[in-house]
Design a protein around this nucleic acid. Structure first.
Lengths: 193, 193
DNA sequence: AGATTAATATACCGTTCGGTATACAAAATG
DNA sequence: CATTTTGTATACCGAACGGTATATTAATCT
């Protein structure tokens, strides 16, 4: 691993554990066994490091969701696939996933929040689009596409959150297809399933 | 408003807008038109200020939830009531509610997270208890009480989150009973309701 | 080989951080 | 009225903050 990647990895671990604002630049470079000018050479600033980190990880995830929203089959299949993609993204790097969610829920005027926001707007819009495409078929959607989009993303996240709280060290293996199906069904048909 | 309450109010506004770690003690006292020793006189430390703030607001909210979980009627009624209580808590002070949620989703090793955690553990345990009381009646719960508890709390929060994003300045009035019922029904019976 | 560029370190900048020693004023208490 | 308690301000602490001027090394290019 080169020093640029090393710095991103160390930063991610610290942001995950302590939060963006609570981590100092000094701390990051010390963990990497480097010095501050090296960090500033690659990223220009602390927020620049976070932005690069987000960009690098999201560029593999977002296109998958956008393709899905554009193509897509029935609503259940689409949601299932979205669940799969999200779980894969989560399992690829749990620390990154949890760091990112913390940023998403952080204060609006915070630089770190503003750095993740655009990615979530894109993600959210794609999911809204998927629901909108199905709106004709589901007669009773009544313009609740946005509510469903947020609701479904939130449901997936809650499931992953519970998964992570129960088993933070990935001891119980990957999340299976049945589990994803169960979450999708609970979202679509309620808890009596 | 006395200076102690004034400091808590100013701190809340800043924590809400910028996040706990991003706000300095100096900034808080300047907004309040006071000086640092006054803050340290009342709260001892920055984290002490946050703790007092949380304690003050939660002591009106948590007992309501605990009573509900202990008494309770049918599951739908219980969830509806829980929705009502949560919405009231949200509307009492939206900034506080959103600040608190940001803390809840923040990094585990962060002091601020550790300050809110106990309140959420209590809240969560109460809701689990409510589901557990109903477990006998709902044959197919299959030990998913914890999942349902997190799921329902998450659903409520998502609804309030969407509400707040759409209308941050409380322009459209209080959340009505029909809306709460709609969220409860969606959780229980899915999106085709 | 010489020049240039990329990558890293030493040592420092001014500012802000959370926190405090001390003094003083106001209010409550004897 | 004297004394203690409560509340607030001035002025400061050392440490850490994000960031940089400059030098040096290592690799690449001509």
């Amino acid at each position: 691993m080169n020093n640029k990647a090393l710095l991103m990895e160390c930063a991610k671990e610290l942001f995950y554990a302590k939060g963006y604002d609570a981590v100092g630049v000094q701390e990051i470079v010390e963990r990497a066994g480097l010095t501050k000018p090296t960090l500033y050479y690659y990223f220009g600033s602390k927020i620049g490091l976070l932005r690069t980190l987000l960009e690098t990880r999201f560029e593999h995830y977002l296109p998958q969701v956008k393709d899905l929203a554009a193509a897509g089959s029935d609503i259940r299949g689409t949601l299932y696939r979205l669940g799969e993609i999200s779980c894969a993204f989560y399992e690829e790097d749990r620390q990154f996933y949890m760091m990112m969610m913390a940023l998403l829920y952080s204060a609006r005027e915070n630089e770190a929040y503003q750095a993740v926001r655009p990615y979530f707007v894109e993600l959210y819009e794609s999911v809204v689009q998927a629901f909108e495409r199905e709106a004709g078929k589901l007669g009773n959607m009544r313009g609740r596409q946005r509510q469903f989009a947020i609701g479904f993303l939130g449901t997936i996240h809650q499931y992953l959150f519970l998964q992570w709280e129960t088993d933070p060290e990935e001891a119980s293996g990957r999340i299976g297809g049945e589990q994803i199906a169960s979450v999708v069904d609970q979202f679509m048909y309620g808890i009596f399933t």
